[in-house]
Design a protein around this nucleic acid. Structure first.
Length: 574
RNA sequence: GGGCCUGUAGCUCAAUUGGUUAGAGCAGAGCGCUCAUAACGCUUUGGUUGGGGGUUCGAGUCCCUCCGGGCCUACCA
């Protein structure tokens, strides 16, 4: 039994996440966590809301709420949606927790003591009307290069030229539109990542089998231009972890907070501490996952994230942990994902384009979405959601191949033998062949799951389901029953056990439907079927069950058309 | 501009890293079955692997070039 620490990239607090966000981190992380638990490993699966930063403040202001209250509310909403999608976090924390404040400040102090923090004075644009400093991209104006009137302070979206906010003609606040802007001096802390460049480079080189997407992004940042740049880790904001605190190795940083990207990954650790607190456990309980000197040496740590998160997880966060000089557990494997597009364009939180988590659950049960998203996960390329593809996939895979198999077996049994595992007969050559075929495919499935090959795992799982239909067709118990009821009984006995087998191995993908199957079978033994022969004998003669309701109702053409139209534009309540 | 990824059947994707005749699912066609959610099974039609050139005994895979798609480029997160 191994110990596996799993973190999903933290969803940002400013609204409900769309399906692209979901499939990029939380959902595959959940798949892996569920699988590893099913295999009997000790798993710690951590996620949290990422609550700091300018967008959170603006979203709260837009909602007419104090930022803290807004975040509390949105955290509750996201927690419910996570439950709705059956995401099996051991803890779903908050980056605004007291634990994260303390740990962020602790690590910053350690970095300061190690000479890895530098104070830098900068000039930054301040908006009098908004009463805040503006990040570059929150300043709009006319591009000096192409004349585009809605160029942002960091880059012109029209001509793609890199800009400095002071380059803009007629600059204005993107928040209020105010032109009452001025350049002010402000002091910030920079993390001297450049001093750790070689250390990080060698650390990346030592990693085996990481996705190209992960390593290529890290290498690019390490070697592009002058190499890894130092990074500002503080901001002039109200909401966040205070930079000035007791014991801080710097002065004059009152009123500033740490940059959201500095404290967010630290929340992985802090959330584990929150987990311990929530369960009445002591510090040793969480430290054995994170401190290599306190038991984390044998932990395997896997992170899941979209590709936009990679630089922070391959460079900044490791720099923070390594630079602290303390024996924190570093990530062992980073599984990164490309983007999921929506019907010819990008999902967009700001534009309300695509299907969002709350809306999805309002249309269909979570398993439909889980299955489609995971079986089409954007592992090698960006992938695309279309309603046609979604309908075809879930109807065929879930309703026809799996759901209908459960239905035909249980209903046939009820009709001929009653709702009880029938006795009589014995397994023959055909049954042995089935068990052999199942074993081969199960091993392939296990290997893909271990390797976090999500799409391949889904394909292999589906192939396992197909074996059941093939067997049933060949065995034809409805026909055999007429001349040899005992043999038909044996065939159905195996088929009922086969359904249980499918429930167990499919659980990581479709936990809600598989729970229904197991409940119908009156079985609570979810032991992974490593020993196939005995696993397929688990439901014994005389064991009673109930025919389940239709597991997966099909998505109709009318629904598809209605939903495609409904989600063609922007969401109205955004 | 620079970097990375990518282009394979009508659609969505594979191809053990250069090795026999490029494979699956869906869609299409034909047959079978009648237990089942008009479900299932069997058979089958689809490919000059984006175009062109090169290396090699051998290229989907490596190199060059052109065309198309995507992402990143450090103050959104």
């Amino acid at each position: 039994m191994a110990r596996i620490l799993i973190t999903s990239a933290l969803p940002y607090i400013n609204g409900i996440k769309h399906l692209g966000n979901l499939v990029g981190s939380q959902l595959p992380a959940d798949l892996y966590a569920r699988y590893m638990r099913a295999r009997g490993h000790e798993v710690m699966f951590i996620c949290a809301t990422d609550e700091h930063g300018t967008p959170a403040e603006l979203a709260a202001a837009k909602a007419g709420k104090a930022v803290e209250a807004y975040c509390t509310e949105m955290h509750a909403v996201q927690t419910e949606l996570a439950k709705g999608f059956a995401l099996s976090f051991d803890h779903y924390g908050r980056s605004s927790s007291a634990r994260n404040y303390a740990l962020t400040q602790h690590l910053a102090a350690r970095l300061g003591a190690a000479g890895l923090i530098e104070e830098v004075s900068e000039k930054q644009v301040y908006s009098n009307a908004d009463g805040r400093f503006l990040p570059d991209r929150y300043i709009e104006g006319t591009c000096p290069n192409c004349g585009y009137e809605r160029a942002r302070g960091d880059q012109c979206e029209n001509c793609t030229k890199q800009l400095d906010p002071t380059d803009l003609i007629n600059p204005r606040s993107a928040i209020s539109g105010s032109t009452d802007l001025e350049v002010r001096d402000t002091k910030h802390l920079f993390l001297r990542q450049s001093k750790l460049r070689d250390t990080l480079d060698q650390w990346i080189d030592r990693q085996q089998g990481w996705p190209v997407l992960t390593t290529s992004i890290a290498k690019k940042w390490l070697h592009d231009g002058d190499g890894l740049q130092d990074r500002g880790i503080t901001r002039d904001l109200d909401w966040g972890v205070p930079v000035q605190f007791d014991g801080a190795p710097w002065r004059g940083m009152d009123g500033k907070v740490f940059y959201v990207w500095f404290d967010a990954p630290i929340e992985y650790i802090a959330a584990t501490a929150e987990w311990a607190d929530a369960n009445g456990l002591d510090d040793a309980a969480w430290r054995r996952w994170w401190r290599t000197d306190e038991g984390a040496d044998d932990v395997r740590y896997v992170q899941f994230m979209g590709k936009d998160n990679v630089p922070f997880h391959t460079l900044s966060f490791p720099a923070t942990l390594i630079g602290s000089g303390e024996p924190w557990k570093l990530v062992d494997y980073i599984k990164s994902f490309n983007y999921l597009n929506y019907d010819g364009g990008q999902f967009s939180t700001s534009q309300g384009r695509g299907v969002f988590m709350d809306q999805a659950l309002g249309l269909l049960p979570a398993d439909y979405w889980r299955w489609w998203l995971l079986s089409h996960a954007p592992e090698n390329n960006d992938s695309e959601f279309t309603w046609e593809n979604f309908q075809a996939s879930v109807n065929k895979d879930l309703a026809d191949v799996l759901g209908n198999l459960v239905s035909r077996v249980t209903k046939f049994c009820r009709a001929k033998f009653g709702e009880v595992v029938p006795e009589g007969g014995s397994y023959g050559v055909r049954e042995d062949q089935l068990i052999q075929a199942l074993g081969a495919r199960l091993r392939a499935y296990e290997q893909h799951m271990e390797a976090m090959e999500v799409r391949k795992s889904a394909a292999e799982l589906r192939a396992l389901w197909v074996l059941g239909n093939e067997y049933l067709q060949e065995a034809a118990p409805w026909s055999v029953y007429k001349t040899d009821p005992d043999m038909a009984a044996a065939q159905i006995r195996l088929s009922l056990n086969l359904i249980r087998f499918y429930a167990i191995v499919s659980q990581p993908f479709i936990p809600q439907a598989t729970s229904k199957i197991m409940a119908s079978l009156g079985c609570t033994d979810w032991t992974w079927p490593s020993e196939l022969t005995s696993a397929l004998d688990r439901l014994e003669t005389g064991h009673s069950f109930e025919v389940p309701d239709v597991l997966f109702a099909k998505m109709t053409d009318d629904q598809r058309q209605e939903w495609a139209a409904q989600f063609a534009g922007e969401r109205r309540d955004a």
